[in-house]
Structure formats: structure tokens, C-alpha cells
Simulated assay, not measured.
Amino acid sequence: MKVFVVGANGQIGKLLVEFLKESADHNVRAMLRKQEQAKEFETKGIETAIASLEGSVEDIASAAKGCDAVVFAAGSGGQTGLDKTLLVDLDGAVKTVEAAEQAGIDRFIMISALQAHNRENWSETIKPYYVAKHYADRALLQSSLNYTIIRPGGLLNEQGTGKIMVAENLGSGTIPRIDVARTILACLNEERTFKKSFDLLSGDTEVAEALKSL
């Protein structure tokens, strides 16, 4: 399976691209905004495509053409304003959903946020971010795509354990970014994750086994 990673230069995206590159089952194409970023990936033998989430649906679809799955792992980041939250986390995600449909790519994995589906549980300090995630997820749910929506808790830059817990609703908690990337990789071909949305936290169960509980 050739996987088109949107947000490949982000923290989760970079980890996922490395996992895909090393995988015997998958190939990867990294979507990047700038040619300078592409050079770094290409020196590692990673295929790239230049496109912007603030560009057109057609540009994203063209960049993804020929891939079998799309992973949306992009984010505007905590240092940008609310305009970028709207343009990247919401509109960029919706454009990518539309681009996947346009390119004839059925499989789509969205990285959302813990409890994005439950308005009453949104953090007041980053509520606009939750609004963006909520409606981006809703656009995917209403699409024709074979989706999986992963809603991780607070993201950590730790080594990770490869052990997680997944459920429709989980309380507050955290998870290392590398374990989120491991979960995305495992979801690609795991049929129990097809047409499913779930919260994701660190836990006591190996990733592949945890996903079988969905």
C-alpha cells in the first residue's frame, strides 16, 4: 500500500514516514510545503510531493494521485494564530478529504484530538482547535471514504512503550507521539478500524491487540 502522508514534516508525520519507509508492506509519499523540506526527505530515499493545505483541492489531489491511502497528520501548531487553525486544521483537513475522493483514494486516516466528538469535554484554553477538529472529523464521517479517526490524548516526546488503550470514550491522559505513529501504521490494514473513530491513550496492551477490541 502506498501511503500519502499529509503533515509529513510534523512530529508525528516524520515518525510515521520513517515507519512506512522501513515497512515491508507499505511505501510512502510525503506531502511537503517547500522544496527545501523535500530535499531532506529525498536524501533518505523518501518520495515527496509539494503541495499546500492552503492551496487548491486539485493540487492536493494531484500530489496524492496513485496512492492507496491518505493519513492526515498535519497541524497548525501551538505558536500560530486562530487563522491558521481554521486554514490548516479545519479547511486543510476538509480539502484533503475532498482531494482523496477526487483522486479515487478510498482509505483515509485522520489524526484528531481526544474527545473532539464531545463538545462538553473540550478544553476552554484551546476550544477553537477543538472546534476545527470536530468539524474536520465530521466532514470525513460524511464523506464516501473508508475512514479511521484517531483521537490521541496529550502528546509527549517520549520513547513510547508500544502499548495503548483505545475506546470510543476515554478520560484525560497522554501518549507519546511515537505510539500514535505506531497506531496509525497498524490501522492501515486492520479491518476492525474501518469506519471507526476512537480515543487513544497510553495503556497496557500491545497496539495490534488493542485495535482488535474495536
Rank of each mutant, 00 (worst) to 15 (best):
E36W: 00
A186Y: 06
V94C: 12
L201V: 04
K2P: 01
K34Y: 13
E191H: 12
A49G: 05
Y130G: 04
A100C: 03
G55C: 04
I50Q: 07
K95M: 06
V180Q: 09
V71Y: 09
I46H: 05
L201I: 02
P176F: 06
E120S: 11
N157Q: 08
D91L: 10
Q142L: 15
S172V: 13
T96P: 15
A8E: 05
F72N: 11
E190Q: 15
G45C: 02
M165W: 01
H117R: 05
L145G: 11
E158W: 02
G162M: 07
A100D: 13
G45R: 02
L185H: 13
V28M: 15
K95L: 14
V3P: 11
I178K: 12
S23V: 07
E101M: 13
T205G: 04
A99K: 10
A132V: 03
G55R: 02
T48F: 08
G160C: 11
T148Y: 10
V70P: 06
N9Y: 08
Q159H: 06
N121C: 07
I60F: 05
Y129A: 09
S23Q: 08
S62N: 13
N146E: 13
Y135K: 07
K212A: 10
T193H: 09
D83N: 14
A100S: 14
T125A: 13
L20V: 01
I109R: 02
T125R: 11
G173T: 10
V6M: 09
L114V: 07
M31E: 04
D83R: 11
A74S: 14
M165F: 06
T43P: 01
G10N: 13
Q37Y: 00
N9A: 15
F4I: 10
K65T: 11
L114M: 12
S52N: 12
Y129L: 10
E191Y: 11
S52D: 15
Q159S: 14
L141R: 15
G66P: 05
M165N: 09
K34L: 06
S172T: 02
H117G: 01
G7W: 00
V166D: 04
L170F: 03
F72H: 07
V180H: 04
A113N: 12
E168D: 15
T183N: 07
E54Y: 01
